[in-house]
Design a protein around this nucleic acid. Structure first.
Lengths: 113, 113
DNA sequence: AGTATTTCCTACTAAAAAGTAGAACAAATA
DNA sequence: TATTTGTTCTACTTTTTAGTAGGAAATACT
């Protein structure tokens, strides 16, 4: 298996999929991205990135059922794979380790509960 | 000012400069990168990335004095600018915030002291 | 049936990040 | 003075990531 890395945008989208759970379909992910970052993003960019993440084996997807809402095509729901989760953990552990070594950051812990 | 983002590799190098302090010159940064990641890196890649970070205003540098050691050209010592530090903080805060929302990660805190 | 709505999807392009190759420099030792 | 060592530096190429444009599908409402 190729040494697959995660770009910044990719990592954020992956995490958003994890956060959104059942609601992780591309439109929603794009909305969530904008609301959490205040950065604009085009739906196409999200789409192609989610595709890439799926190719890399970090995400899986399947079509959801049509909902009872007004109009609309069926949603493609994404879920994180074991490999995706591992990639996120590795990335987190590595960052936390670096932060702890950087004097300007090294308060010893980060609380985020 | 342009909306300057930080790539994955760039962010790691920036942090390594912070960690290395007085010892933050490109050769050392490359060494440190390899020892902390177990990933190989070419000195040229480090060099061009440090350059880019300097152009973006996240790093500053100046030539150090010649040391009493065997041989060698003078070192260019890098330091993080205020803007670089802010970028790191922003990135950290954002990540911590996302992790806390991701059920699989949300233990509430990360200890790294 | 026709229209509006919600979402997907693909092929393409642009921009940015990462990596390569190899020369050049400065100082210490032999 | 020649050699070795530690290091910088620049121009270039490749790869990866991000973004664009615009069409198409599926569903519900009228």
């Amino acid at each position: 298996m190729k040494e697959t890395k995660l770009g910044e945008f990719e990592e954020v989208l992956l995490l958003l999929v994890g956060i959104l759970g059942e609601e992780a379909y591309s439109f929603k992910v794009a909305e969530e991205f904008e609301s959490q970052t205040k950065r604009e993003v085009s739906i196409g960019a999200v789409h192609s990135t989610l595709n890439r993440l799926e190719e890399k084996g970090f995400l899986e997807s399947e079509m959801g059922q049509a909902t009872a809402e007004r109009g609309g095509r069926r949603k493609r729901i994404y879920t994180i794979t074991a490999s995706g989760q591992r990639a996120l953990e590795t990335s987190r552990d590595f960052r936390v380790s670096l932060w702890s070594q950087f004097p300007a950051f090294a308060t010893g812990k980060v609380n985020f509960g």
